[in-house]
């Protein structure tokens, strides 16, 4: 059940709730408390629905079924199939750098600020169970090799933002913002013609310090990166972005990348791809012609 709280801020309402292990909010450009109650309820229900359906931590959903299929084929529903199609396309577009099967590498890498690196042997053993090209995906049937796992965590939150935005757009014509822990969508200019102002967190002080402000009329914003998740050994900093092709952290990845795109899902992909490019992050983003902040 969603627990919602409401705040009136200046001339708009905010509905707050928790989902996907982060603080979420819906802002609506209206002085109408009934409306924000209705919209926040829709948003929270949808966020929880997507979380339940695609979280890899739950024992009762499609991801669990796929990850425990022991090499057997699994038939998936329409929505899951769309997400897998999308993941397959992103794998292709990133030349294999974006890979929803890379989660098993977490068994070797714990980014706790310590100096405990895995051995090359540990990593190469895990790598035999990583790689979307080892997966048989013929819509709507997926077949993983035994020991492989998929994780839609790299898409789920941004996807939830865009889904919620679609539901809210059908429910109101007032301008709104959907914000799931910093990944967000802005539906349009406010009634007075002004844009919403979005603060960009300092990756070193999330939620405390802002390094800039975005004025955005319409579109999605997403951030990749977490400056507090790394390993440090012999003066070399290993960030938590892993290259699924060799199982090692991407060298010289930015600490944080924030991107504006037409949808939150696209923004999320751009920022993720940029991190995976390492030192080439800025060149990659420049080539896409998107607005970004890279720290």
């Amino acid at each position: 059940m969603c627990e919602l709280t409401f705040e009136q801020r200046q001339d708009f309402w905010a509905g707050l709730f928790e989902a996907m292990a982060c603080p979420c909010e819906v802002l609506v450009d209206a002085a109408d408390r009934d409306l924000i109650q209705r919209l926040a309820r829709i948003a929270c229900d949808e966020a929880r629905r997507i979380e339940h359906k695609f979280s890899r931590y739950r024992p009762d959903n499609i991801i669990h079924t796929i990850n425990n299929s022991h090499g057997r084929p699994v038939r998936v529903d329409e929505e899951t199939a769309r997400l897998l199609d999308y993941a397959a396309e992103c794998h292709r577009l990133s030349a294999g750098k974006f890979d929803i099967t890379s989660g098993v590498l977490r068994a070797a890498w714990r980014f706790d600020g310590s100096d405990r690196l895995p051995t090359p042997q540990q990593v190469s053993e895990l790598l035999t169970r990583v790689g979307w090209d080892k997966v048989q995906w013929h819509t709507p049937v997926i077949q993983l090799q035994p020991g492989m796992e998929i994780d839609l965590g790299g898409i789920g939150k941004e996807y939830a933002v865009d889904r919620i935005a679609q539901l809210l757009r059908a429910a109101t014509r007032h301008s709104f913002v959907v914000n799931l822990g910093g990944d967000l969508y802005v539906s349009g200019r406010r009634a007075d013609g002004n844009t919403w102002i979005i603060g960009i967190d300092d990756p070193a002080a999330t939620g405390e310090k802002s390094i800039g402000e975005i004025s955005i009329a319409q579109g999605g914003v997403a951030t990749s990166g977490d400056a507090r998740r790394f390993l440090l050994r012999d003066g070399v900093r290993y960030g938590h972005i892993l290259d699924p092709r060799n199982g090692w952290p991407v060298p010289d990845a930015p600490r944080s990348v924030t991107v504006i795109a037409p949808t939150c899902t696209e923004a999320g992909m751009y920022s993720t791809f940029a991190m995976l490019e390492g030192a080439g992050a800025r060149a990659f983003l420049d080539a896409q012609g998107v607005t970004y902040w890279c720290v």
Partner: peptide
């Protein structure tokens, strides 16, 4: 990297298919 190709169009199309609400019951 001078020759980074743009994936913008392909990504936009794929995202459009993902979020298309034509067949997905909202």
């Amino acid at each position: 990297l001078r020759n980074t190709p743009s994936i913008a169009q392909a990504l936009s199309l794929a995202t459009c298919a993902l979020l298309s609400d034509k067949a997905l019951a909202l």
